[in-house]
Amino acid sequence: MTRRDWHKHNMRIATWNINGLRARLDFMKLWLADRKPNVVGLQELKTPTEDFPHEEFEALGYKALVHGQKSWNGVAILTNVDAELRQVGLPGQEDWGARLITAEIDGGIEFTTVYCPNGKSLQHDDYANKLAWYDSLVAHWSAGDHPKRVLCGDFNIVPTALDGWRGEAGAGTIFYTEDERKRFAAVMDTGLTDLYRHLYPEEQAFSWWDYRGGAFHRKHGLRIDFLLGTQAAVAATREVVIDRDYRKKLDGLTASDHAPVYADLHS
């Protein structure tokens, strides 16, 4: 069996908000060497496309498809299998930054990663913009018809009480509002399933913890980083891991405030 044939039957896909590419580059190298994912959706690069350090990842066997911008936002797809760029940016939402990129991955997966707006607060203009951005995402995603699709990234929404440390007490606050949850439900209603929740319907686990106040050690987190898939992706999923070990400081290097999330697929 050739390497290409192997990857058609076994693939590790991942999502990770790295909170600054320059700050996290050496940390990412440790993770890539350890976990050996085949396809990774990255968010919050905070790096212009032209400044992306391709050679650093090529040395590890990864090609990068990049939609970056200076200081803010930015998304990329790392892959060690063949991939072809399909979409850069969310149509109609270009003013809100580099937040979406899609590639066709060898092995028959259409892979999209997104960095959804934060919204800041219910009183901030960015909150209404966040809801409008989600409406555009639903419209864009609904227009696609690929049978095996993955939509992953930092969604900045806590879908249910189980997904936030405050539980029901969080209801009505930013990330937990009814309007945000309706938008997330609309994304799911396009035919997507939360791969982690599919395997672990009652597990409370988080993917983001504030740097402040010892939130990680106090288990004050949110699950806002998701791997969502169509039924073909769900059927292929064998395991999903929220990689908490890589939210910890390693070798003197500071982690992102988000943990990577990865899934192992077999077809």
Results as ranks from 00 to 15, higher is better:
residue 3 R to V: 14
residue 8 K to R: 15
residue 12 R to C: 00
residue 14 A to S: 13
residue 16 W to P: 03
residue 17 N to F: 02
residue 20 G to P: 03
residue 22 R to G: 04
residue 26 D to Q: 14
residue 29 K to E: 14
residue 30 L to R: 14
residue 37 P to Q: 05
residue 38 N to G: 13
residue 42 L to R: 07
residue 43 Q to H: 04
residue 46 K to P: 01
residue 48 P to T: 08
residue 48 P to R: 13
residue 56 E to D: 12
residue 60 L to V: 07
residue 62 Y to K: 05
residue 71 S to Q: 13
residue 73 N to Y: 08
residue 81 V to T: 13
residue 83 A to H: 03
residue 87 Q to D: 04
residue 87 Q to E: 11
residue 90 L to Q: 04
residue 92 G to H: 09
residue 96 W to K: 13
residue 100 L to C: 06
residue 100 L to W: 09
residue 105 I to W: 04
residue 107 G to N: 09
residue 108 G to K: 11
residue 116 C to D: 01
residue 121 S to F: 09
residue 124 H to R: 11
residue 124 H to T: 06
residue 125 D to W: 07
residue 130 K to N: 06
residue 133 W to K: 06
residue 136 S to V: 00
residue 137 L to I: 07
residue 139 A to K: 12
residue 147 P to A: 08
residue 147 P to N: 10
residue 152 C to N: 04
residue 153 G to A: 06
residue 153 G to Q: 04
residue 156 N to H: 12
residue 160 T to H: 14
residue 162 L to Y: 07
residue 165 W to P: 01
residue 167 G to W: 08
residue 172 G to Y: 09
residue 172 G to Q: 12
residue 182 K to A: 15
residue 183 R to C: 13
residue 189 D to M: 08
residue 193 T to E: 09
residue 198 H to G: 00
residue 203 E to I: 09
residue 203 E to T: 14
residue 206 F to M: 09
residue 206 F to N: 05
residue 207 S to A: 07
residue 209 W to H: 03
residue 213 G to S: 12
residue 214 G to I: 09
residue 216 F to N: 06
residue 219 K to L: 06
residue 222 L to W: 13
residue 225 D to T: 03
residue 226 F to N: 03
residue 230 T to L: 09
residue 234 V to P: 02
residue 235 A to K: 15
residue 240 V to G: 02
residue 241 V to Q: 11
residue 243 D to A: 12
residue 248 K to V: 08
residue 249 K to N: 12
residue 254 T to L: 11
residue 254 T to P: 00
residue 256 S to Y: 02
residue 256 S to K: 05
residue 257 D to A: 01
residue 258 H to T: 05
residue 260 P to F: 03
residue 263 A to T: 01
residue 264 D to I: 10
residue 265 L to I: 06
